[in-house]
C-alpha cells in the first residue's frame, strides 16, 4: 500500500466534524490539520459526496413479493412500511447500528428457520384456510378437466388420479406432452 494514510485520529473524526459534534479543542485541532492537509480535505469531500448521494437516493418501494413474504412470515400482523433511506446524514455508525437493530429485531422472525413469534389472528387463519381450499380446489378442477378428456369421468377424479389419466393419456397417444 503506497497511498498516504490519514492518521486514524482525524479519519475517525471526519463525520463528527461534518456533524459539528467535535468539542472546541478537537475542532480546533481538526481544522488546523485541514488547513494544511489536502488528503484530509479530499476525505471530507468524499464523505460529503457520499452523504449527498445517500440523501438523494429515492425512497425504495419493497417489491410486492418481499412485503408479501414478510407479512406471511410475521403472520400478517403488521404491514411492511415503505422503505426509504432516512436522512442519516453522516452518521454511518448510527446507520449501521440502526440496521443492526432492525436485523436483530426482525431477524428471528424473518430469517429462514427463524421462529415466528407473531401469531396470525383467527380471521387471518380463516382467510388462509379459504385460500388453501381455493388453491386445492383448482388442483381438483385440473384433475376433473383431465378426466373429462378421457370421457365421462368428471367429478370423480382429483389430482390423486391426475397422474393416472396422464399415464393413460400417454399410453393412448392422446394430447399429452
Amino acid at each position: 500500500m503506497t497511498d498516504k494514510q490519514l492518521p486514524t485520529w482525524f479519519d475517525e473524526r471526519i463525520e463528527a466534524w461534518l456533524d459539528d459534534e467535535l468539542s472546541g479543542s478537537e475542532a480546533a485541532l481538526f481544522e488546523a490539520r485541514l488547513a494544511t492537509d489536502p488528503l484530509l480535505e479530499r476525505e471530507i469531500e468524499r464523505a460529503t459526496r457520499l452523504g449527498a448521494q445517500l440523501q438523494d437516493l429515492p425512497g425504495l418501494q419493497a417489491p410486492s413479493s418481499l412485503s408479501r413474504n414478510v407479512m406471511e412470515i410475521t403472520g400478517n400482523s403488521f404491514a411492511l412500511p415503505k422503505l426509504a433511506f432516512p436522512a442519516w446524514g453522516w452518521s454511518l455508525g448510527g446507520a449501521c447500528a440502526a440496521a443492526l437493530a432492525l436485523m436483530v429485531t426482525l431477524g428471528p422472525a424473518v430469517l429462514p428457520g427463524g421462529e415466528p413469534e407473531l401469531q396470525p389472528t383467527a380471521q387471518e387463519l380463516a382467510k388462509a384456510r379459504a385460500d388453501l381450499a381455493l388453491a386445492l380446489g383448482y388442483v381438483d378442477q385440473a384433475g376433473n378437466m383431465a378426466a373429462r378428456q378421457l370421457g365421462g369421468q368428471a367429478g370423480a377424479l382429483t389430482v390423486r388420479g391426475l397422474l393416472e389419466p396422464a399415464r393413460r393419456l400417454n399410453s393412448d397417444g392422446a394430447d399429452t406432452i
Partner: peptide, 17 residues
C-alpha cells in the same frame, strides 16, 4: 381477481390448526 400467497409460516399455522 384472485391472488393467493401462502408462505411457510401461515402453512405451518394452518397445519397446527
Amino acid at each position: 381477481t384472485v391472488e393467493v400467497s401462502l408462505g411457510p409460516a401461515l402453512l405451518g399455522f394452518l397445519r397446527k390448526t
